[in-house]
Amino acid sequence: MTHVSLKVNGREVSRDVEPRTLLVELLRRDLNLTGTHVGCDTSQCGCCVVHVDGVGTKSCTMLAVQADGKAITTIEGLAAVAEADGRAEDGLHPVQAAFRQHHGLQCGFCTPGMIMSAADLLSRNADPTEHEVREWLEGNLCRCTGYHNIVKAIMAAGATMRGAATPRAAE
């Protein structure tokens, strides 16, 4: 067993874990943060994306011990980040709100990872083109939506976050 201490959604946590424990297992099993999902075993689907020190990261591809000393935000903690920035609406991060507004989810299984990944994109590029959004989503699979409304939602969230009246038109 190895001891890890990290901050998850603003709370200090420490646990003894087996060295082989993945970050996603720590989150889901030990911390009961089941909003982060597992959809594959080859680091392809992105259902498991969380923010590690603010950077989008596949939590299935990181050992819990590698997260020692880091600050993790999961889907459960995303709205609070937006609250702190004064950007939350109706208790939601703008990306969460946009996914709902634009029907960017159906079964909801890919959704937490999609939202976390999209929030990471928009923190780097607040005004992505449709092409940039589609390229960015290389690491996130969705089987339900055909991506159509996900791309729309992300572009709309970008517009909200930069205070634009209308999202960029489709190319």
Binding site: T34, H37, I75, A79, L92, F99, R100, G108, T111
Partner: peptide, 21 residues
């Protein structure tokens, strides 16, 4: 009409089988 089920999914509060312990 916007979907009433969405809020739980976008906040990570959906409850899928593997989430049940």
């Amino acid at each position: 009409t916007l979907r009433k089920e969405d809020r739980r999914f976008i906040t990570g509060k959906g409850r899928y089988v593997d989430d049940i312990r």
